[in-house]
């Protein structure tokens, strides 16, 4: 036990150092490299700094870094909750098509100009949420009582993803002028992060995350079969609907902020469970932290791998995520399928 505690301490110290390094890199790296000394000077508002560099740091990179941290935390915690809700190690909002649903909502809103009716950012987020909820409902109905059956759930998610991407392609086909905009939502990017968006979304995200963190006991009990969990005193149906609504809302906010970014909700909770066990008291906070640093890492890679070009972050996370998915699939007992 002591050995385990020491190991955990070491891992946590390593993660904290990694976090500091990644935040520093996220602010200093990019198409324009700005040395850390200058960044500090900018942060302390000294006069000696270049105006363009100041603009890049304060108006682009800091909001971008904050967005990446918030989105990473939200996607990872949503994935962790989804895996418990569906009693299934291979689920997350992206794989079940919920992120794509939100993205379709955003695309429809922007192509048909609905965004302006409700008003800018709120319009985008409302459409993302409504479409994400609709997708979640369809998945829940399709999977029915077989929620924990991997095959049914994943195939339902696959079918929904196909359907949504067909609708997205249709929108693209008839609106070639908005191609870039729609592709951006489909592949994810923090390129358009802004303080305006952060101010609108961050308080909601923080509240939703706090609500999830207060549900660790309920989530633990949800690891059991529905009948046993009910006999222990948990209102399974009510809790499941609540948790599904909260995570779907969080996911749609993430899509509204940065488009569709897959696999974070799959990879991060898995690594956390592997290192620290399945109890949600550990899984949720550690998923938040690891989700944030992993997303930061992917975002840094997305803008530094090829100079002067930004690769959509969804591509980077999928390059990590898809092989990881296969790895978990191989590890999952065949009889669970």
């Amino acid at each position: 036990m002591n050995l385990n505690k020491n190991r955990n301490k070491l891992i946590i110290i390593f993660l904290i150092i990694l976090g500091i390094i990644l935040v520093t890199l996220s602010i200093t790296k990019g198409s324009v490299k700005i040395p850390i000394k200058e960044v500090i000077a900018i942060l302390f508002n000294q006069d000696s700094v270049s105006k363009s560099h100041k603009l890049i740091i304060l108006e682009l990179r800091i909001p971008r870094t904050i967005s990446a941290i918030m989105v990473g935390m939200s996607l990872a915690i949503s994935g962790a909750v989804f895996q418990t809700l569906f009693k299934n190690p291979l689920t997350e909002p992206y794989l079940l098509g919920i992120s794509s649903g939100a993205a379709l909502g955003v695309a429809i809103a922007s192509v048909f100009g609905f965004v302006n009716i409700i008003g800018g950012i709120w319009g985008t987020f409302s459409f993302a949420f409504v479409f994400a909820i609709l997708t979640a409902l369809i998945i829940f109905t399709l999977a029915g009582k077989n929620r924990s059956s991997l095959t049914i759930l994943l195939l339902s998610g696959l079918a929904i993803n196909f359907f949504l991407s067909a609708l997205n392609s249709l929108l693209l086909y008839f609106n070639k002028d908005k191609l870039e905009n729609i592709i951006y939502w489909q592949m994810g990017s923090f390129n358009l992060s802004s303080y305006e968006k952060i101010i609108v979304t961050m308080p909601i995200m923080i509240i939703l995350i706090i609500v999830l963190l207060s549900k660790t006991k309920e989530l633990d009990v949800l690891l059991l079969s529905d009948d046993t969990a009910t006999s222990i005193g948990l209102d399974v149906k009510k809790q499941r609907i609540r948790l599904l609504l909260i995570t779907t809302l969080l996911t749609s906010i993430c899509v509204g902020l940065a488009g569709v970014i897959g696999f974070i909700g799959l990879i991060i909770p898995h690594i956390v469970k592997l290192l620290f066990g399945v109890k949600h008291k550990n899984v949720l906070p550690l998923s938040l932290y690891l989700g944030a640093i992993f997303t930061l890492l992917c975002d840094i890679l997305s803008r530094t791998l090829i100079s002067n070009t930004e690769i959509p972050i969804g591509i980077i996370t999928a390059l990590f995520g898809a092989p990881f998915f296969l790895y978990i699939l191989r590890k999952t007992k065949v009889n669970a399928l």
Partner: peptide
């Protein structure tokens, strides 16, 4: 309290 038949759904705890 309740003990279900053949509890197959066992978390890794």
């Amino acid at each position: 309290s309740y003990v279900e038949q053949n509890s197959t759904q066992l978390p890794h705890i």
